[in-house]
Design a protein around this nucleic acid. Structure first.
Lengths: 217, 217
DNA sequence: TGTACATCAGTGAACGCGCGTTCACTGATGTAC
DNA sequence: TGTACATCAGTGAACGCGCGTTCACTGATGTAC
């Protein structure tokens, strides 16, 4: 058609016959379309249109829509891991302060990246069946696992709960609050407090139940 | 075509020109199709085919696919409420035993009724924007709220947490564990314990954190 | 009890549309010499 | 430095398909008298 794109959002380089980085552009197109219309209302053809290429072009990079979707989820897990690791920051200045940051980051990701979040947790992408995806998910979980280990290490040695269980509980709390109350879109419920406050209180009660004094020395 | 249906699953009455209860049949068809292929892979036309009627027939009962989807979610909330209320059973023989049953029932529903669960929580149905749906969701939540109140009533009057917060926390724990680990389909992660055990331990630690001795007298 | 009529649930044929997918192609890029 | 060639990313036209939606219709049901 022309040298210009049909859609905005891809201004990085002047288009030539070769796109340059269509694979990336398609992932970003998918993200944008999922954010706009949910995981259901997003098609391979539309992603191509959004990226400004012919409907046949995506086939050079993805076998089908599902593979593109899986790539979005993979990218999501990678960014999720990075965000959580940044928040954890080696457990500085102490495990409880850092854990609180991790919780807030979890909620922030769910709200700020609803497309990633949907692709990772709600779109029915078969994470367990895809080794690359599963490992990316496990790397993200490993951050929570590390945090749980630090929390457990702060407990008296007798009666320490298994760190893995604590990590799974932390994950469930963050995921539960994020899914139910912390999405950007309309799935909001009226709440007497913010999701952040709700999660913070939840973790505090939980840690107290473990026998930890999270308020610090 | 013939007197027989194209698909099994609808044998209740011998079909005549009038279906008899097409509205019900369409909801059940939607459930079956969602269970098979997820919320995305289910169409209005296919639901009609599954119910054994022409593609125009559903328009007598639902404005469009979204309205059918919302009806599925509504039915889901109703059944969810009923199941939770049955499990709670007025808090007998004591709040903690009953709460444990409620948690197990939450997980059982998520696993046993994945189509309802998806429609209610993952399909992007705008629950908050639809009064009927929202109220049905609130009635289901009210069961958890009642359980939380009973748990709080078992605490010493000084330092009782707000029952609403406790209810939201219970919801988040159950929902988090169910969503992450307790779905029937492939979204399973390898776990060192069953979702039921994980949730039970989670609630126990949480209650201990509230200062409650859930092990009973 | 029987007949006439209004109602309305479901029919079936038709339509336009966008999607997924394929194909032979073409233009840009990189590399060997 | 320049030329020839291989590679391959993206084109654009084409297709079959199923979906959503509409329409005038028809058969079943219920009700008034």
């Amino acid at each position: 058609m022309s040298w210009r794109k049909d859609e905005p959002g891809e201004r990085d380089a002047p288009r030539s016959y070769h796109h340059g980085n269509l694979r990336e552009a398609l992932i970003r197109a998918a993200l944008e379309l999922i954010a706009r219309k949910g995981t259901a209302g997003f098609t391979f053809a539309e992603a191509a249109r959004f990226a400004g290429v012919s409907p046949a072009a995506p086939y050079r990079h993805f076998r089908d829509r599902d593979e593109l979707m899986a790539s979005v989820a993979l990218r999501g897990f990678e960014q999720f891991e990075a965000a959580l690791a940044r928040a954890w920051d080696g457990g500085r200045p102490d495990a409880f302060t850092a854990l609180d940051r991790v919780g807030k980051t979890y909620l922030e990701f769910a709200r700020g990246e609803p497309a990633f979040y949907s692709a990772m947790f709600e779109a029915g992408v078969p994470v367990a069946a895809n080794p690359t995806l599963r490992e990316a998910g496990e790397r993200a979980f490993a951050v929570l696992r590390g945090a749980a280990e630090a929390v457990c290490a702060a407990m008296p040695a007798t009666g320490r709960p298994p760190a893995l269980m604590v990590a799974l509980h932390i994950w469930a709390m963050a995921h539960g609050v994020a899914s139910l109350f912390g999405r950007g879109d309309g799935a909001q419920r009226a709440l007497p407090m913010s999701p952040e406050e709700l999660l913070e209180a939840h973790v505090l009660v939980y840690l107290r139940g473990l026998g930890v004094n999270a308020a610090g020395p």
